[in-house]
């Protein structure tokens, strides 16, 4: 692994660095993910994992039809996922569009993080000026986490300098807010691109790297997440700084979530098993985690009427 002595900013320097990273063999990475998904997590390990997964959820609504009422309802659920059981922990954060950040902040107070998607989410097709305004607006409204999208077009065209510049700009606009950089891995297509985009984002100042917007057909997958976990692991070895990972979209069941926890443990390591360094971008996942939790508590299978809808 190379060392990053000076921040790399030009396309040429970034290209030299990113293209010198080891390649990723897709079949091997997929096989590794499949092997890890055969881990069998039972009993107390499962109970522990379910509570951790709940604490890692960024409970999300990102719809054109979102309303203040809908956001408030979701926030209530985020604070207290299971009204019948006070031992259920809160989720990590709520994740909304920028215009809903103020409502979300008012609803959760200081108990939870408020994440706002910004930078012309989900496509990122706007001028940098508009994107920065979007970010400042959300931060001013109370968001303490910003989920930005990278310009995939620029990335795929090899214009790494531009992508870097945009992330650096957004990071500055975030102020103290944490920056999650969405790579939109479903559009990057190859795992080599996922690895390069991960490094590009980390070097530009991301606090988290996130897989997806949830708005393109392919969202988070275990192989993609493995590659990102390897990137944060290697970045830590190089710099001593731990960057977080957030798979988003397509994670709907407790079984899925637990598989991801196994991926973390056996790829990046136990240090990442905390909401500070790992999040699930999800909505329906929470209810499945609650159903599983109820089953483990009562010993029988629960039903959808026993968990609340958002």
């Amino acid at each position: 692994m190379q060392t990053v002595a000076e921040p790399l900013t030009t396309t040429g320097a970034l290209r030299e660095f990113l293209h010198a990273l080891p390649g990723v063999d897709e079949v091997g990475a997929t096989a590794r993910a499949a092997a890890l998904s055969t881990r069998s997590i039972k009993n107390e390990a499962k109970a522990w994992a379910i509570d951790l997964a709940i604490r890692m959820v960024d409970l999300t609504t990102l719809e054109g039809m979102d309303t203040p009422a809908k956001v408030r309802a979701m926030c209530a659920k985020a604070l207290r996922p299971d009204p019948t059981d006070p031992t259920v922990p809160s989720v990590a954060a709520v994740c909304v569009y920028g215009d809903m950040a103020a409502i979300a902040r008012a609803s959760v107070g200081s108990a939870l993080h408020v994440a706002a998607v910004a930078t012309a989410f989900p496509s990122g097709r706007a001028s940098q000026e508009v994107k920065l305004h979007d970010v400042r607006d959300a931060v001013a409204a109370g968001a303490d986490e910003i989920d930005m999208v990278i310009d995939r077009g620029a990335f795929l065209a090899g214009n790494y300098g531009l992508v870097n510049e945009q992330i650096v700009g957004v990071k500055a606009a975030c102020g103290t807010a944490h920056l999650k950089v969405i790579l939109e891995t479903g559009e990057l297509r190859t795992l080599d691109n996922v690895r390069r985009a991960s490094w590009l984002a980390m070097m530009a100042g991301a606090d988290f790297i996130k897989t997806s917007t949830g708005k393109v057909p392919v969202a988070a997958t275990p192989p993609v997440t493995i590659v990102m976990l390897q990137a944060v692991r290697d970045y830590y070895a190089l710099t001593g700084t731990r960057i977080g990972v957030k798979p988003a979209g397509g994670i709907r069941t407790s079984k899925d979530a637990i598989k991801y926890l196994v991926l973390i443990k056996e790829t990046a390591g136990e240090a990442w098993l905390t909401p500070d360094l790992f999040r699930f971008g999800a909505s329906t996942l929470l209810n499945d985690l609650l159903l599983q939790r109820q089953r483990m508590a009562t010993g029988h299978y629960s039903g959808p009427d026993y968990v609340t809808i958002d």
Partner: peptide
């Protein structure tokens, strides 16, 4: 002699 190689993008 038999040679294996993954097929991936």
């Amino acid at each position: 002699k038999t040679v294996w190689h993954p097929i991936g993008a």
